[in-house]
Amino acid sequence: MKPLIIEKTEETPEIILNPDTNTYKISYRSLPENANGFYAPVFQWLEEFAQSPIEDIQFVFELEYFNTASAKQIAKILLILEKIYQKTDLEIVWRYKKEDVDMMSSGIRYSKLLDVEFSLEEVPDN
């Protein structure tokens, strides 16, 4: 499957979905006005990927900030990942900067909603 790479902007995250290198990561920040539109290609990619996922996937979220419109889209992504988890080994890694309580609690909230391997990782603040 072709990788999906979206570069970060002031208002949208960097997205790397690359089976060639086995890297799956969403990072930086997400506050698009039209979150639905921005994440549409991501869902499309993941739905297709979910048909025949490869083994041993680590899906990383390393966001500094997201708006509520993006919060819903992230929930949707996580629900697709939960489906993939039923087929193959998949771990969700939720990274947050040291002392970023908001990002930590968002991670905890999502982890409670899902039946999937989910780990929270604190990373140093720069």
Partner: peptide, 16 residues
Amino acid sequence: VEVKKKLFNIMVEMLQ
């Protein structure tokens, strides 16, 4: 930093 961050978050939601 937390105050600034909160301010930022709230502004995004209010203005959007």
